[in-house]
């Protein structure tokens, strides 16, 4: 077995083992269920930012596309979890196709702003159609609706395994991308899109595919979040939720498969512990960000890769 495959499957196995051996306390089990879902969001973001080099400031749009497609279909149309997931998947593909097609007419900072603006529009629309979405208050998906294959997804252990399953699929998919020729083209575009163009690649098409993959994975994360945690609200579509995946990816290491996981764990527990010390716990996050940029510019895993393990995908 190749060592990169070994590392990533090993990480997944470790997360299974932690649960099987009962090492988690209830509290950390709940936290990790949440972190894994958010990591899926980070993985989605990383495909576009880390591998393709496109910095979006509007990914909350994709996250909430999945979140609301799943949540509203269960709430208003009595869809079951399976149907809601399929709908959320299709809707995420559609939204990322349309947004990608439009936003990719711009590059660089304009791309950042256009994605940010699209995301703002989505946020305002959620508020505007408050009759359906209940606006900022949001809606609760009742425990009785959160059953999949007769498994109660609100049970902490089942929730953990569900999150881990979604995470594992996305991680392996991400690994496959990173090792495939498709992924190498994305990296080529990140490093020098003009040269990739000259080599005869349809750069625009590859970028669009990257947006669709990235947006859809983010949408799956959103749908999973709503279904596993039972709440769908407008705050997930607001600007901070576009910034978070960027931070996880940058902290963990952009363009590394495990980076988003490391970044999300790091930031979650940093906030968790800091909030015991001070109300202004975000100041500790701020300081951590500065330290990382000053001393580990490539992110935690990225720095390891740069110094010791150049083979990490």
């Amino acid at each position: 077995m190749k060592r990169d495959l070994f590392i990533h499957l090993g990480a997944i196995a470790l997360l299974f083992l932690l649960e099987i051996l009962g090492i988690f306390s209830d509290y950390h089990q709940g936290n990790f269920a949440r972190i894994l879902v958010l990591t899926v969001y980070g993985i989605g973001y990383n495909v576009l930012f880390g591998y393709t080099g496109l910095l979006s400031l509007g990914h909350a749009l994709f996250f909430s596309a999945g979140l609301y497609a799943a949540g509203l279909s269960i709430y208003h149309l009595d869809y079951n979890v399976g149907q809601a997931l399929i709908l959320a998947f299709c809707f995420s593909v559609l939204v990322s196709l349309v947004i990608g097609y439009l936003a990719l007419r711009t590059v660089g900072v304009s791309f950042m702003i256009v994605t940010l603006m699209f995301s703002q529009i989505a946020y305002l629309c959620i508020l505007y159609f408050g009759g359906i979405t209940r606006g900022d208050e949001g809606i609760v998906i009742q425990q009785s609706s959160r059953v999949f294959l007769s498994l109660d997804l609100s049970d902490p252990t089942i929730r953990y395994y569900s999150a881990l399953t979604v995470f594992s699929f996305c991680l392996v998919f991400n690994l496959w991308i990173a090792r495939s020729s498709f992924g190498r083209v994305l990296i080529a575009i990140r490093e020098n899109s003009d040269r990739a163009l000259m080599l005869g690649y349809n750069v625009q098409l590859y970028k669009l595919l990257a947006v669709i993959i990235s947006g859809t994975i983010s949408g799956i994360a959103g749908a999973s979040y709503g279904i596993l945690f039972g709440y769908v609200g407008a705050s997930f579509a607001a600007v901070p939720y576009s910034i978070f995946p960027l931070l996880w990816v940058l902290l963990g290491g952009a363009g590394t498969v495990l980076g988003p996981l490391i970044g999300a764990i790091f930031m979650f527990y940093l906030i968790d512990y800091a909030s015991d010390v001070t109300d202004a716990y975000m100041i500790i996050v701020g300081i951590a960000l500065l330290l990382v940029t000053l001393f580990a510019r490539r992110g935690l895993l990225g720095e390891l890769r740069y110094r010791f393990f150049p083979w990490i995908p």
């Binding site: 940058l250 109300d279 100041i283 300081i287």
Partner: peptide, 20 residues
């Protein structure tokens, strides 16, 4: 890129310092 993340850090520090 590093500047974006560093200024996000500065953003939090100033904001939270004012809060404190």
């Amino acid at each position: 890129e590093a500047t974006i993340i560093a200024t996000i850090g500065i953003l939090y520090i100033i904001q939270q310092a004012v809060l404190m």
